[in-house]
């Protein structure tokens, strides 16, 4: 089995988050209504339950992590992480410029970066000759522009769904 520190770490995050949520919930204001439980009742109940359930998970996962031999990551792990981060970063960037740049430019740039980004991280681009590189970039650009403008047209004109102009 692969040694993964993330597993116990995620449990730890849950423990901390549930404790923080519990404390935060205890500061919620209340309005007295006959028979009503307070607004803080459920958030506190749930965060306490998460804390109780996550504790054994954390202990288990930590034990499992310590007992698993330290091994090298499988081939391509670094590339996988890079691709994962690429998608998160691009999606975040896309959200940031979505309304500011307008639909077609932001979507075209996002799509282009996604496609080219995957080619780069997987080492596909450096394997290509100069002409091949230009061709690959042109194909990605074409795909991006066609996708963005056709989607924009279909949704705003045919489906009447408003998108940032």
């Amino acid at each position: 089995m692969e040694r993964d520190l993330g597993k116990p770490l995620f449990d730890l995050v849950l423990l901390i988050a549930s404790a923080a949520a519990f404390v935060h919930a205890s500061a919620l204001p209340n309005i007295d209504i006959v028979g009503d439980l307070s607004p803080a009742f459920f958030p506190q109940l749930i965060s306490a339950a998460v804390f109780v359930l996550a504790t054994p998970c954390f202990i288990n996962d930590l034990r499992e992590w310590r007992s698993t031999a330290r091994g090298d990551h499988p081939v391509g792990h670094r590339r996988a992480v890079a691709q994962w981060l690429l998608v998160v970063a691009l999606t975040l960037g896309y959200t940031l410029v979505f309304e500011r740049l307008g639909y077609i430019p932001s979507t075209a740039v996002f799509t282009f970066c996604c496609v080219v980004g995957f080619t780069v991280t997987s080492g596909g681009l450096s394997a290509l000759s100069m002409g091949g590189k230009v061709k690959a970039l042109a194909a990605a650009a074409l795909f991006a522009v066609v996708l963005a403008s056709s989607v924009y047209y279909v949704f705003t004109e045919l489906f009447d769904i408003p998108l940032p102009g």
Binding site: T91, Y94, F98, T107, F110, C114, F118, L163
Partner: peptide
């Protein structure tokens, strides 16, 4: 192809989430 498909899926997700209530907060 996978990379084009992944990009397109995200594009459609954005439309679905933004199209319903036009609120970028929901994209985050």
């Amino acid at each position: 192809p996978r990379k084009q498909l992944l990009a397109s899926i995200l594009v459609f997700c954005f439309i679905g989430v933004y199209g319903v209530d036009g609120d970028t907060f929901n994209l985050y």
